[in-house]
């Protein structure tokens, strides 16, 4: 879980850095140039996509099998089980936030990677899409789920890989997931309000 998750974390950092060009205020020139550059290096992009796809498949497989294992480990539940430790909305909902992100991923790729560009401009397509309240709202909701998923994911990865469960790393996880999810949320929010 941790290794495949961290691969996607790496992807998200790159994806966010590139996509922030959407907010450069130059009517999409920088973004379209960036998109064009990525499309000009398929020898790099296609293997990366395949690796990420494989990592995703492994991640989902692990998540589903571990969830089933957990259900089998406690076939008869409690009438009452109270949290007194570190259980959070994020940790409780990992499988659900994960499934939402999985569905979102399909929609996202279908909309933007394979969507019809307006006058050949991907920026115009993004601008047009986020001009609709429903699309912008959907993206914002998913970014909240993504933020929660990434929060628990990063602190878990530190622990699973044997680093530590120290509060410093837990705080670092919160900061990092806020930057990533907040950064991504900024794009639909700004584009909806701006146009």
């Amino acid at each position: 879980m941790a290794l495949t998750g961290l691969m996607w974390y790496g992807f998200l950092v790159g994806h966010l850095a590139g996509n922030l060009t959407l907010l450069s205020g130059d009517s999409g020139a920088a973004f379209d140039e960036y998109a064009g550059f990525l499309e000009s290096i398929p020898q790099f992009i296609i293997p990366t996509e395949l690796i990420l796809l494989l990592a995703l498949a492994l991640h989902v497989y692990c998540a589903v099998s571990l969830s089933r294992e957990a259900a089998a480990a406690r076939p008869i539940g409690y009438r009452q089980l109270r949290s007194v430790g570190g259980r959070s909305v994020a940790s409780r909902s990992m499988i659900w936030s994960g499934l939402l992100i999985l569905v979102f991923l399909g929609v996202h790729i279908f909309t933007f990677k394979y969507g019809d560009r307006i006058d050949g401009s991907l920026f115009r397509l993004v601008q047009e899409t986020f001009g609709h309240a429903i699309w912008a709202g959907f993206y914002l909701i998913v970014m909240v789920a993504l933020g929660l998923h990434l929060w628990h994911a990063l602190r878990s990865a530190f622990q699973t890989l044997g680093l530590s469960a120290r509060p410093t790393l837990r705080r670092l996880s919160i900061a990092f997931c806020t930057i990533i999810a907040g950064g991504f949320a900024l794009i639909p929010a700004t584009m909806f309000l701006g146009g």
């Binding site: 571990l66 294992e69 480990a73 430790g85 570190g86 940790s91 622990q159 469960a165």
Partner: peptide
């Protein structure tokens, strides 16, 4: 037994 999902309960 199940696995650890790092909730620290």
């Amino acid at each position: 037994f199940g696995h650890c999902t790092n909730e620290y309960e």
